[in-house]
């Protein structure tokens, strides 16, 4: 899956989870950029991302992930 395709799917997941059709995520997007994205919603977001891509984040990755770009990197490294 190309990076563009990963981002396309991520956009859909973000829109579903935050129920906002206008969201467009980029490499630099962080929780500060999306109003409802707090530490609690983060849990649901990661679960939805895992489901979408059929992969699992480990604890180390969750703790160190800084922005959507890093999230995409982890996804790509796991699904090959």
């Amino acid at each position: 899956m190309s990076r563009e395709e990963v981002f396309e799917k991520l956009n859909e997941v973000f829109r579903d989870v935050f129920d906002d059709e206008e969201i467009i995520v980029t490499d630099a997007t962080t929780a500060d950029d999306i109003e409802d994205w707090d530490s609690l919603e983060h849990i649901n977001l990661l679960a939805a991302v895992e489901q979408e891509f059929g992969m699992k984040f480990n604890m180390g990755q969750v703790v160190s992930m800084k922005n959507v770009g890093e999230m995409a990197d982890i996804i790509i490294s796991q699904i090959g």
Binding site: V13, D16, V17, F18, D19, N44, A47, A48, Q51
Partner: peptide, 13 residues
């Protein structure tokens, strides 16, 4: 379950 988790906001609306 995964649908309910992901879409709860929309479902509620």
């Amino acid at each position: 379950s995964e649908y309910v988790l992901k879409k709860s906001k929309k479902i509620k609306r």
